[in-house]
């Protein structure tokens, strides 16, 4: 068999009519994609901020659950009553906490026309009993 002339015997195909437009569209799309990295930190931030917030919530929840029993340890007083709550953060010692009220109520009530009755509203923990001594 003689040498085969591929060029003469192989069919030749041509590009489709819209080939140039397809390429130019692909170039435009790629140019647009190349610009996106300028904004991707913000994009990643948006996507991952929710994940980060959820993770932070879980961490706080777990920490709270682990620390909470220690924070709410109850000491039984000598009379069997609940004396106070004791936090590991508070200094040990007497269960009575001395508070100093900076307001002079005599002056506050001086201008009062009616009976001079002062109501002291103290924050009360409704889970444990507090003894308040004035």
């Amino acid at each position: 068999m003689d040498e085969i002339n591929l060029k003469n015997h192989l069919p030749r195909v041509t590009a489709p009519p819209d080939f140039e437009q397809r390429v130019l569209n692909a170039v435009a799309a790629k140019k647009k994609k190349k610009l996106q990295p300028l904004f991707w930190p913000a994009k990643i931030f948006r996507q991952w901020s929710f994940v980060g917030a959820a993770a932070l919530f879980v961490v706080v929840l777990v920490a709270g659950l682990l620390l909470y029993p220690r924070l709410t340890r109850i000491n039984q007083g000598p009379e069997g009553k609940v004396a106070s709550t004791q936090s590991p953060l508070m200094p040990t010692g007497p269960s009575i906490l001395t508070l100093t009220e900076p307001v002079d109520f005599r002056e506050e009530a001086a201008g009062s026309q009616g009976p001079k009755v002062i109501y002291l509203l103290e924050p009360v923990n409704d889970r444990f009993l507090h003894e308040v001594i004035y």
Binding site: R12, V13, T14, A15, F19, A26, V27
Partner: peptide, 28 residues
């Protein structure tokens, strides 16, 4: 160059559609 490239890739792959895709990628 488009016809030459498409034809070359067609002979190389045997698949016209694939040849056009590869030719497109070539020019990009």
């Amino acid at each position: 160059y488009k016809d030459r490239i498409v034809n070359f890739l067609y002979q190389a792959t045997g698949d016209y559609e694939r040849a056009v895709d590869l030719a497109q990628e070539t020019f990009v």
